[in-house]
Computed example of a mutant assay.
Amino acid sequence: MSQRKIVELQTLGNRDNCQHSPIKKRLKKNRNCKKNSITGKGESRPNCRLATACRVAEDQGLSTRMSESKIISVLRKPMTHVSAEADSLKYKLIYPVCGFILEIALKPIVHREFGTVVWDAALGLCQYFEEQKMDFSQKKVIELGAGTGILSILTVLLGGDVTITDNPQLLQQIQLNVSANIPSSMKSRVKIRALSWGLDQTQFPSDYDYILGGDIVYNYSSLPLILETLQHLCNESTVIYFASTMSISRELITSGYRTLFQYFDSDLVCRYENADVNLYRMTKKKSQAQG
C-alpha cells in the first residue's frame, strides 16, 4: 500500500456527453423523483467506497483492473495504513461532473471516518445539480459538514459564492482540494471556516441563498444542533438541499427529517434507488420565517 495510489474514477459524466457515463446510467435507470414519500424502498446500500471504486492506478501511472473482492480488501484497510506520513495524501478520487474533472484527495484521520470518504449523498447532489443544470452565479451558498469539499467545489465552479464548513481538523484537507480544483480567478468566492452546529452559527450571517448538506442527518444528538443552525442561517427565501443515504440508518434518518419538516416546507425532489439516496429541497415555513 505504501507504493500505491488509489484512484477512484466516478464517471458521473458531463452536460455534453452524460449519456455515455455508466454511473449516470446506473443512477438514471433507478431514479425516482417522488414528492410524497420520505424513505421509499430501495436496495441495500453497498459499501460507500466500493460502490464507486473502479480502478487502481500505480504511482508510475500504470493502471490495473481489479476484481471486486480485491477492491474490497484494499479499501477496507484502515486509512492510517494507507499513508506513511501524517501530512501526505496517498489516494486521489477523480470525478468528471458538469463538464469539470474534479480531483479529490483524501487525508487519513486517526479514529475518524467522517471526511475521509466521499459519501454517496454528496455524489447524489452533484448528480442532481448536473441533471438540473444548476447555475449558482451571484448566489451565496454555505455547506454544512463538507468533508472532502467536493460538493462545495462544484458549486463554486457553477458560479456560487460559497462558504465551506466542517470541523477544524478537516479544514486543511478541504483547503488542499480547493487549491487543486478552483482556479485562482475564482478563489475570491471561496471561504473555508470551522462551524460547530448549535454553538457558533451566530458568527455566520443569515442571508444565504442556498444551504447544502450531504449525509449529515445521521444521529439523534446532532439533530437539535443542525436545526438550531439552520434556523439561524435561513431566511424566508433560502433554499436548503439535503441528501441522505437512507440505509445508513433508515429509521433514524426518517425520524430526523420528520423533525426538520415541522419547521421547513419540504419536497423529496429526487431518489437514486441503487445508492438508496434521497434528495430533499426545503424552505423555512412562513410561520418560522415571520417568527
Rank of each mutant, 00 (worst) to 15 (best):
I192E: 09
F204M: 08
E8W: 05
I71H: 10
K70F: 05
N219K: 06
R271N: 14
N36C: 09
G99Q: 08
K92T: 14
L233H: 04
T283R: 15
V277P: 04
A180W: 00
Y95I: 15
S67W: 02
L230N: 10
G13T: 03
C234L: 08
E273P: 00
V7W: 02
S44H: 10
D120Y: 00
N32Q: 14
D215V: 04
N32K: 14
Q290L: 11
L157E: 02
I150Q: 01
M134R: 13
D265K: 06
G42M: 09
S137D: 08
K77R: 14
K41N: 15
I211E: 09
I174D: 08
N274L: 11
V7I: 13
S185L: 10
L154N: 06
S179E: 15
G115T: 04
A243P: 02
M246Q: 03
K5N: 10
G159H: 07
V178L: 05
L279Q: 03
P224M: 12
E85H: 12
E43W: 04
A289P: 03
A51D: 08
K90F: 11
L230Y: 10
H81T: 14
V156Q: 07
K25G: 02
K187E: 12
E43G: 13
K284L: 15
L223Q: 13
L75K: 02
L223N: 09
A275T: 14
L154G: 06
L227T: 14
Y91V: 04
F114K: 07
Q175V: 00
S188A: 08
R193V: 00
S244H: 04
S188W: 00
A121N: 03
T238S: 13
L62V: 07
S196V: 13
V277G: 06
G213W: 06
F261V: 00
E103W: 05
N219C: 15
Y208P: 02
L106S: 12
G145V: 06
K35F: 08
V156M: 04
E131M: 08
L233N: 02
K187T: 13
Y263S: 11
P224Q: 10
L27S: 01
G124I: 02
K70S: 14
V217A: 04
V82Q: 10
R4E: 09
Q10R: 07
E113T: 09
K25S: 14
Y280C: 01
K41P: 00
I38F: 13
R55L: 15
F242N: 01
P108I: 03
K70M: 12
A57W: 03
T80Y: 05
K35N: 12
E103C: 13
S179G: 05
V141G: 00
G13Q: 03
D265Q: 08
K29W: 05
K139S: 09
G214S: 13
Q138A: 13
V97R: 07
A194C: 11
S185T: 15
V117M: 01
Y208V: 00
C270Q: 12
E143G: 05
K92M: 09
W197C: 03
Q169Y: 09
S266L: 00
M79S: 12
H232T: 11
R26A: 08
N47A: 06
M79W: 07
L93E: 12
E143H: 05
